[in-house]
Design a protein around this nucleic acid. Structure first.
Length: 357
DNA sequence: ATGCATGAGTC
DNA sequence: ACTCATGCATA
């Protein structure tokens, strides 16, 4: 049984948790941070966020609650209307199943599929709305117009990526990083490149490395999935395999800053190993296999998603009750809604210098 | 490439 | 119950 595929992941997790504000190491005077308010970085960033978000100073919005919500809904509605563009040939797919398709099974088979492509036009629908709301409890739901959302046809197209064209940010974000992890240390490397240390955490370097990594990986004819599973063969203490998803996210810089930093040395180690092996025409395609059950992925229909986004813009951190209410309104399972909000928050935070928030 | 989900560690 | 790192499933 593959029992190692589980604990190996935790190797990178760091003990920073939510608001653990420690590890002030690293002289914070590397690269001047741009004007952009640093997104999320290590340690206390979370604490700060929390200290800022739940700030319902006065009820200046008291009377605006409704209008705000209405606006959110209007936005969602507009989306629906302005969707029938011109040429689109897609059957208005509506979730055929009730939002209850969430069966899961503990499947622990390492990646084995292959799929790799280039071009990474990352575009994220960052909802930049930070109105500290809170007084919109019951009303919040009273106003939602599920009829509108549900009634309107689901966007026939899958192209919902209305990239808000982010500015050509110059990178160099907050250099408030903490070195790599304790374990997972990259081993001695040839270092004949003379331009990178495995312990640096400069976003610019990360970006550069990710790019080089991808190119060289492709040159070696290795897929992201291959890299993921090959990682286990490196025998680095505490480092097991990773999924294609993670490799992909690393290459596209869609991981958190900390995560990028933690993974870099490992992937760098792999790259060097792979190139070495390649030179000597020696490959070690060690792959395991396993076959178990599958998991059905819940699919939230476009209309519901729009409503969720509208709510998110108003209140990114709804209370449990609110979540339950929203879930009911949208006819979704509460847990699905909760997870959706979690993922949405995570997306907003993920690395990738989003324009100025 | 990404959406929805799980689980460990926190708070 | 949340954040974070990850992963399966899927477009």
């Amino acid at each position: 049984m593959m029992m190692m595929s589980l604990n190996s992941k935790q190797a990178f997790s760091m003990p920073h948790g939510g608001s653990l504000h420690v590890e002030p190491k690293y002289s914070a005077l590397h690269s001047a941070s741009p004007g952009s308010s640093s997104p999320s970085n290590s340690s206390n960033s979370e604490a700060m966020r929390r200290a800022c978000l739940p700030a319902p100073p006065s009820n200046i919005f008291g009377g605006l609650d409704e209008s705000l919500l209405a606006r959110a809904e209007a936005l969602a509605a507009v989306d629906i209307v302005s969707q029938s563009k011109s040429h689109h040939h897609h059957p208005p797919h509506h979730s055929p199943f009730k939002p209850d398709a969430t069966y899961h099974t503990m499947n622990t088979i390492p990646c084995t599929s292959a799929a790799s492509s280039s071009s990474v036009p990352i575009s994220h629908p960052s909802a930049l709305a930070g109105k500290p709301h809170q007084a919109l409890e019951g009303e919040l739901l009273e106003h939602l117009s599920p009829g509108l959302a549900l009634g309107a046809m689901a966007g026939p197209d899958g192209t919902v990526v209305s990239t808000p064209a982010h500015a050509p940010h110059m990178a160099t974000m907050n250099p408030m990083h903490q070195a790599a992890l304790s374990m997972a240390h990259a081993h001695g490397l040839p270092s004949h490149m003379g331009c990178m240390s495995d312990v640096d955490a400069d976003p610019r370097d990360l970006e550069a490395f990710a790019e080089r990594f991808k190119q060289r990986r492709i040159k070696l004819g290795v897929t992201q999935a291959d890299v993921g599973s090959a990682l286990a063969n490196l025998k680095i203490p505490g480092v097991g395999s990773l999924s294609q998803s993670t490799i992909c996210r690393f290459e596209s810089l869609t991981l958190s800053h900390n995560n990028m930093i933690a993974l870099k040395p490992i992937l760098q180690a792999w790259l060097e190993e792979a190139e070495k092996s390649h030179r000597e025409k020696l490959t070690k395609p060690e792959l395991f296999n396993g076959a178990e059950k599958k998991r059905k992925r819940t699919s939230i229909a476009a209309p519901e998603k729009r409503s969720l986004e509208a709510y998110f813009a108003i209140q990114p951190r709804p209370s449990s009750e609110k979540i339950a209410a929203i879930a009911e309104k949208l006819d979704l399972k509460k847990n699905v809604v909760r997870v959706w909000f979690c993922n949405q928050r995570q997306k907003q935070k993920r690395m990738k210098y989003s324009a100025g928030i």
